[in-house]
């Protein structure tokens, strides 16, 4: 009995113990294992500035040389354009399409009446 009390009190003490407060190990970059964060910060800052300088030069070159002017893209929407092309290819569909449109329109009017 005494043994059980001791065991139970030990268990309670263990459960009530505060979680470990020691700081967990720091997470580092795999590629930066041998260098300090200060060194890596300075390195990546330089790489960024180099990238920005390269992109600025490329942008100036690209924008200054002009660009080709293509034919104006069609103004119609995707579905209208698709429909027009389909009807041009198959003129017999035009009658069927207009009949279907009329039917759908009638249905809508009936539903909302």
């Amino acid at each position: 009995m005494a043994m059980a009390v001791v065991r139970s009190s030990l268990l309670r003490t263990a459960l009530r113990r505060k979680p470990p407060t020691a700081a967990p190990p720091r997470r580092n970059f795999a590629s930066a294992g041998h260098h300090s964060d200060e060194h890596e910060t300075a390195k990546w800052e330089k790489i960024t500035y180099l990238g920005i300088a390269t992109c600025t030069v490329l942008s100036i070159y690209n924008l200054s040389k002009g660009h080709p002017h293509h034919e104006e893209p069609p103004l119609d929407s995707y579905l209208t354009g698709f429909r027009t092309r389909l009807l041009n290819l198959f003129p017999s569909l035009a009658t069927a399409a207009s009949l279907e449109e009329e039917y759908v329109y009638k249905k809508i009017v009936e539903t909302h009446a």
Binding site: R26, N28, F29, S36, D37, E40, T41, E45
Partner: peptide, 8 residues
Amino acid sequence: WAHHAILA
């Protein structure tokens, strides 16, 4: 660069 700056 931002990530290393935060870590530093």
